[in-house]
């Protein structure tokens, strides 16, 4: 069996300590978290946490069952496959010499990114999309010299029926 990447999203009580319960379950049982992203939903009592993990399928099954056992986890869904929308946001701060600026801006444009901040010798570029797209963007920007990088990890929703 090969470890698989697996994305899951859960609605949880918006209470102190809930993220720690979820993260603690992973660390305590030796599961790994590749990324975790959480914030409140339109209902102030409920937050959404989205986690990417990598594990063998039976371990993934076990992780999901264990999460469902947490009292604060109200609902849990997998976010893999075409029936879901997934997005990740990255902020990439790159070193840019004046003579490279035009070239970099073209790449940013090509990637559908935006410039979030600019200075004489740097740009902060904002890119979003499926995780693979963000990965490609980072790859293309890398040659200019990445000074800092922040990624949210993916979030997602299951599509509604058409």
């Amino acid at each position: 069996m090969k470890p698989q990447k697996h994305i899951m999203t859960m609605l949880v009580d918006n209470e102190p300590g809930v993220v720690s319960r979820v993260a603690g379950l992973f660390s305590g049982k030796g599961f790994n978290i590749e990324s975790i992203c959480g914030s409140p939903t339109h209902n102030p009592e409920v937050s959404r946490i989205t986690i990417v993990t990598r594990a063998d399928p039976p371990v993934i099954e076990q992780i999901e069952k264990q999460l469902r056992k947490l009292v604060n986890v109200l609902k849990l869904r997998s976010l893999n496959g075409p029936h879901c929308v997934r997005r990740e946001l990255a902020l990439v701060c790159i070193a840019v010499k004046p003579e490279q600026r035009a070239e970099v801006l073209r790449i940013v444009d090509l990637l559908g990114g935006r410039v979030a901040d600019a200075g004489l010798s740097h740009l902060i570029v904002e890119v979003s999309g499926e995780q693979e797209e963000v990965q490609t963007a980072i790859h293309l920007l890398e040659p200019y010299g990445i000074k800092k990088l922040a990624r949210t990890g993916p979030i997602g929703l299951i599509r509604e029926p058409k």
Binding site: G17, S20, R21, G24, G28
Partner: peptide
Amino acid sequence: IVGITRPCTKHNYL
């Protein structure tokens, strides 16, 4: 104690 016993209780509360 809530933090300490989180992994060995079914649930806990402050």
